[in-house]
Amino acid sequence: MESTFYYELRSGAQKNWLLLDLVRNRFGRLRSPDRSSAGDSLKSAKAATSFLWLPSCVSGEILEIFFGMAAIYSLYIINKSGGLIYYKDYGSAGRMDTNDSLRVASLWHSMHAISQQLSPVSGCSGIELLQADTFDLHCFQSLTGTKFFVVCEPGAQHMESLLKFVYELYTDYVLKNPFYEMEMPIRCELFDINLTQAVQKDRVAFLGR
């Protein structure tokens, strides 16, 4: 472990080892003076970063890889007919190729629709949260039928407000772009930039807890 930086985000989480490799590959030798002092809970996230011996220019990116991006695995936007119009993954966990992401999108669209019909209460607006052993899926559907969902680590907080914010970004930087065609895949740079910032901001909130 001499040449590596280890921080266990959640006990037993395999993905951290993957991230570890990612960082090691990207930045070469990084060292932590004392592995044990990194702690094993979220609470010490701040402490864990503060003692790290790192050039300040790279620490931001490492933080992003380790903390912010670890909380959110991927983000999807699907249009009202179930087509995937935006997909972005963060970090190495849960990464998917294009076909798989399209499949997830249409699968989720159908499941969402079925859940509305199966629901015992009337006026159900579909699944909002799917909890699995290794991930949580938070979904937000706008009244116009566009669905936004994030796949994140189990127990990640504040995802509803993040999705709400992504919706606002979508209205600002996608729908207001005169060259964006409705219901088509989103290729808007401004949206990408602002989305990345939003996810980073989420990271800051995450560190602050």
Binding site: S142, T146, T171
Partner: peptide
């Protein structure tokens, strides 16, 4: 209108 409605709902 078809684009504006989303902004309206979001904000």
């Amino acid at each position: 209108g078809i684009r504006l409605v989303d902004e309206f709902l979001a904000k």
